[in-house]
Simulated scan of single mutants.
Amino acid sequence: MAVAFTLNGAPVALEAPEGMTLLQALRGPLALSGPRFGCGAEACGCCMVTLDGDPRPSCTLPLDAAQGRDVGTVEGLGTPEAPHPLQQAFLDEQAGQCGWCLSGILVSAEALLRREPDPDEAAVRAALEPHLCRCGAQNRMLRAVLRAARAMRA
């Protein structure tokens, strides 16, 4: 099947087999490593991307669901030279340990801050609830998202 969509602001088109998930396409032919395979059942958040601005797990999402839509991954947030305020806040708060969950968490946090520039702690907790982090860094992640929100408003 032929699929065309916008990925991190750039148009992409690819030929893929029927049944391919968006995550398989991102990690395979599109060669992105940010979205990760975790559980394959939408239960961990490692594969989170935005679809037209809304966070969605990509592990079960059929690739053809992206047809004509806007897909965002952590690779679209910032660069090492110019990190997104969320990335900088996560560094400043030392909010990551193993890093397996971070790309999905950053994607969901960015979608939250785009929708709600001044979230309270409850809103951040709700936005990050679908994400599983086994390292125990959740309080630092919460502080990082709130810090990024302040920085983005300044």
Rank of each mutant, 00 (worst) to 15 (best):
L61Y: 01
G28T: 02
G104Y: 04
L113Q: 14
D92P: 07
T50R: 05
T21F: 01
M48N: 04
S33C: 09
V107T: 15
P80C: 04
L86V: 00
S58N: 15
A127L: 07
Q87G: 12
L112R: 01
A82H: 05
E121L: 05
G72P: 00
Q88S: 02
L22D: 08
C135T: 13
R115W: 10
E110R: 12
G78P: 11
Q88L: 00
A25K: 03
H84W: 11
L142Q: 10
H131C: 03
H84V: 04
R36N: 15
D92A: 13
E75M: 07
V49K: 08
P130Y: 01
I105F: 09
R147W: 02
P17S: 15
A126E: 15
R147H: 11
A31Y: 15
P80V: 09
G68F: 09
L132E: 08
M48K: 04
A41Y: 13
P83L: 14
A82F: 12
A66N: 02
L102P: 08
D64V: 10
V124L: 05
G72E: 14
R56C: 07
W100Q: 09
A111C: 03
V74K: 01
S108P: 01
C39N: 03
R114K: 15
L91T: 13
Q94K: 15
A122S: 08
P119C: 07
L112Q: 01
L132T: 02
C44D: 11
F37M: 12
R56P: 10
I105K: 01
P85W: 08
L14Y: 05
P62G: 07
C133V: 00
D120E: 05
G104F: 05
P57M: 10
R143G: 15
V49S: 14
C44A: 11
C133N: 02
Q88R: 12
L146N: 08
E121H: 06
N139H: 15
T79F: 15
V107L: 09
C47S: 09
P83F: 10
N139G: 13
T79K: 08
S58C: 03
Q138K: 14
R134F: 02
A109E: 07
S33I: 09
G28A: 10
V49C: 06
C46N: 06
C133P: 06
A25E: 04
P57D: 14
D64H: 15
H131D: 03
C135N: 14
T73P: 09
E129D: 14
A95D: 07
L14N: 05
D52M: 03
D52G: 14
L113M: 06
R115G: 10
A122W: 02
G136Y: 06
L146M: 14
P80K: 10
L142H: 02
P55N: 13
L14F: 00
C46R: 04
Q24P: 12
V124N: 09
R147S: 12
S33Y: 15
I105M: 09
G72V: 02
